[in-house]
Simulated assay, not measured.
Amino acid sequence: MSPNLPNSSLSRAAARQPFWRWLMVALLVVALDHATKYWILQHYQWGDASVVTGFFNIVRAHNTGAAFSLLADHGGWQRWFFVLVAAAATLFILWQLRAHGGQKLASFSLACIMGGAIGNVIDRLMHGYVVDFLDFHWQGRHFPAFNVADMAISVGVAGMLLAELLRWRRERSQPQA
């Protein structure tokens, strides 16, 4: 940066740097999600499964619903509903990252949520369903299959809860004026 730039220009440029960092996190989530889904689509047919351990399988499952197959059997309208929700969430997250990119935990969490949402939207637009492949089970009970995008969304939500808890604790510990 040039020392001749006014302070406001320096601060705006410095504020934009975290924004791009968070976009790269989201892009990494999308890339990892689609690399794994591409591999599954190339090597498994719908319903195929490989036992990895006594509690974990790799499967190829198609989810037309949301988390835990919510609304999966509702005739197809949910595909476009979930695309619209993800688009609105992405716009909101972009706005939040632009405004609060310096808040590392919250921004990382939002970037994970955005990357996961975009990853699953790409599936919905390309296939009409989301490709899931991670199948954990115990004593005959299976957790719903999921994918990298779902993991990123879950990590992002947990991170947002933690960021808010930490913010709340900081505010509580500050003396009242």
Rank of each mutant, 00 (worst) to 15 (best):
F133Y: 11
I93W: 01
V157K: 04
P3R: 03
V155Y: 09
V51S: 13
G65T: 01
R167I: 01
D150F: 10
V29A: 14
G54L: 08
R98D: 12
L70Q: 06
A72W: 09
S9R: 11
R170G: 10
A31I: 09
W77S: 03
W77L: 08
E171G: 13
W80Y: 14
A61M: 14
H43A: 09
Q176A: 14
F82R: 04
A88Y: 01
G159A: 10
M1I: 13
R167M: 11
A149M: 05
A31E: 00
R124L: 09
V59G: 06
A149I: 07
G102S: 14
V130R: 01
A49N: 09
T90G: 13
A49F: 12
G156Q: 03
Q17H: 13
F146N: 02
S9G: 09
A86K: 04
L94H: 02
R172S: 13
A31W: 09
M160V: 15
L27V: 12
M151D: 02
D73G: 15
V52Q: 08
V83W: 04
A31K: 05
A26M: 12
S2V: 06
D135N: 12
I122K: 01
F82T: 05
A145E: 04
A61N: 11
F19R: 02
N120E: 15
G116E: 07
W39R: 06
G65S: 10
D33Y: 05
D48M: 12
S107E: 10
N7C: 05
N4T: 15
D135A: 09
D132V: 00
H142F: 11
A149Y: 04
F19K: 00
A66G: 08
P6C: 07
K37R: 13
N63G: 01
D150R: 09
W168A: 08
A88H: 02
V131D: 04
A158H: 03
L91Y: 15
P175A: 11
H127V: 02
A106R: 12
S9W: 03
A87R: 03
D123C: 11
E164W: 12
L110D: 02
L5G: 04
R12S: 15
G140I: 06
V148Q: 00
I58M: 12
A145K: 01
Q139L: 15
A31D: 03
M24P: 00
R124W: 06
F68H: 08
Q174K: 14
G75D: 07
W22G: 03
H62N: 11
R170D: 13
A67R: 00
V83F: 07
L105Q: 08
V130S: 07
A87N: 02
A149S: 13
A149E: 05
G119E: 06
F81Q: 06
I40K: 03
A149F: 08
L32W: 07
V85A: 13
I118R: 00
A26E: 03
R16K: 14
S173V: 02
F92G: 15
F136N: 08
W95M: 03
N63W: 06
L94A: 10
N7T: 06
V59F: 04
G156C: 04
A72I: 07
L23F: 05
N120R: 10
H127K: 12
P18F: 12
L97Q: 07
G101W: 07
N120Q: 15
